[in-house]
C-alpha cells in the first residue's frame, strides 16, 4: 500500500485530478467499446429477425 488513508488516495499527492480524469476516460473508452457493439448486435439481431419473419409470412 502506498497510501495511508482514503483521502490521501483520492488526492494522489495533489495530482488527483489528472489521475482520476485519466482513469475515468479509460473506463469510458473501455465500456464504450463493449457496450456499443453489444447494443448494435441486439438491434441488428432484432431487425434481421423481423425481416426473416416478414419474408417467411410473405412466401
Amino acid at each position: 500500500m502506498s497510501f495511508n488513508s482514503f483521502s490521501e488516495f483520492l488526492s494522489m499527492g495533489g495530482h488527483g485530478l489528472y489521475v482520476w480524469l485519466s482513469y475515468a476516460l479509460g473506463l469510458i473508452v473501455i465500456l464504450a467499446n463493449l457496450v456499443l457493439p453489444l447494443q448494435a448486435g441486439k438491434r441488428l439481431k432484432q431487425s434481421l429477425a423481423r425481416r426473416i419473419h416478414r419474408e417467411a409470412k410473405r412466401s
Binding site: S2, F9, M12, H15, G16, Y18, V19
Partner: peptide
C-alpha cells in the same frame, strides 16, 4: 493505483 510506488520525480501522476 494502490500498491505501485509513486515515482520519485513525478509523484502520483
Amino acid at each position: 493505483l494502490l500498491f505501485a510506488p509513486a515515482d520519485y520525480q513525478q509523484g502520483n501522476s
